[in-house]
Design a binder for these strands. Structure first.
Lengths: 246, 246
DNA sequence: TAGTTGATGTGGTTGGACCACATAGCCTAG
DNA sequence: CTAGGCTATGTGGTCCAACCACATCAACTA
């Protein structure tokens, strides 16, 4: 029933045939990250389909973050296999938020779930924590010099992603990134309306340091608690998107 | 007519322009689930692009689970807006697993995380639990009559998804579904090799009933513990350890 | 009245053409 | 001999004009 057998004579749409062929190349290891697909014209000829169908398949893979297409010649050109799961998940989540079928509150709630788990699981000596510490310093610098929320938030996102990465689970990392991306505009919108950004930034930084310290002390439970409070507090301060009572 | 304020950056690829236009229609509520897009030819003319570019955009939306394209005439034809986030996330995860950049162990781990949370959060009177109970009965019937692992597993998946749905978080539900889909072939592969399927099925059913009972008793903590043991035990029985990482 | 048949409109597919781009390599001026 | 410019080549990006299979509906026919 779940056989991996490919029926090339079925009523499958042409671009799906191409898609299946490429996915099989990936599964079999004949194509891997960094590798390049045959040119669109070559692929069309090999699979006996039109270039249009090949392009539709490639467009899907591009949207999924599996390939990157580049014009011209040289190493940057052609269609090359990459691996950017966050792009695909983020686009999908953003689109479905647009259809009103994915409440922002559910996204925030899921983010808390994943990030809390990551904080609890992160090892005190994870190298990603060094990056997180560096980012904290940069946020301090931004606060002293420019005091712009945008720059601070960009670093804040990278800090939280670094914490998630420290848990060592690629799926959780990707999902975290995509969740952030899908509500990025939403977050920035009410951040701009905060009454006292400097105070907020200072508080966020203090909380960041507490979280990092807890992880460094191997106190996963405390780190998780702090992370949950940190995120919930931030969104509550914006006066929006409070997840259901819990 | 379409006096939107989209930034028509000249460096944007044509299909992305179409994508942006459609996404804006969704955000503005001028397009919603159940609604139909203009025909490909009409859309091409309105946006002053080729039908090819329109089709590439639609192909992406289709892969993202945002639209469904149907030929012919009538209510089932045309390109209609749907909302199937699971399809997009599942395809993306499956593709990236194929590129060896998302370890199956990470997916299983994430599944345990999400499903444990869902079990702990599900309300005892959630209507989805009735469906879960019905599915348990059907699994019993399958076991008595046919004893095929495939049919049983199909119901098993629906049971677990029902539990996830009971938590009332659409993002978690979608992610759960996509995680299952992405490792479906993987799961079925070693299930076929289990030494005594009947015994395994009976044990799984007993555990299912325990989990459901715990949720009905409003004992979220116990339900979560049972779910974690249930999933971990299943994958362990299949002789699947954590894939070597390095 | 019941069945057939054609018109209409949908997405699906194809081949060909042209464009912008980026490299590699030849080729000329100095 | 070198440095610069120019051309050949190959890539993806875009567009067009067909044709197909399909599904409905309305007009027509027995």
């Amino acid at each position: 029933m779940w056989s991996n057998h490919i029926n090339y004579d079925s009523d499958m749409r042409t671009h799906q045939l191409v898609l299946t062929w490429i996915e099989k190349q990936l599964s079999d290891g004949q194509l891997s990250v960094g590798g390049r697909l045959p040119s669109e014209r070559t692929l069309a000829e090999q699979l006996a389909v039109s270039r249009t169908s090949v392009r539709e398949a490639i467009r899907i893979l591009e949207a999924m973050g599996v390939v990157r297409a580049g014009v011209g010649s040289g190493p940057e050109a052609g269609t090359v296999v990459i691996s950017d799961p966050t792009a695909a998940l983020g686009s999908a989540l953003r689109l479905h938020v647009a259809t009103q079928h994915l409440p922002v509150s559910d996204i925030v709630e899921t983010r808390i779930l994943l990030e809390t788990w990551a904080a609890a699981r992160a090892k005190p000596d994870a190298p990603e924590l060094d990056l997180a510490a560096t980012l904290l310093g940069e946020m301090d610098a931004v606060e002293r010099v420019a005091r712009t929320a945008d720059d601070f938030l960009a670093l804040d996102i990278r800090f939280h992603l670094a914490l998630a990465d420290a848990a060592g689970n690629a799926v959780v990392s990707s999902m975290m990134g995509s969740l952030r991306e899908s509500i990025q505009g939403y977050t920035a919108r009410f951040t701009a309306n905060l009454p006292d950004w400097d105070a907020t930034a200072s508080r966020l930084q203090a909380e960041h340091r507490e979280i990092l310290a807890a992880i460094r002390n191997d106190d996963g439970a405390r780190a998780a608690t702090l992370v949950a409070a940190h995120i919930e507090g931030y969104y509550r301060e914006g006066g929006v998107g409070r997840p259901a009572e819990g």
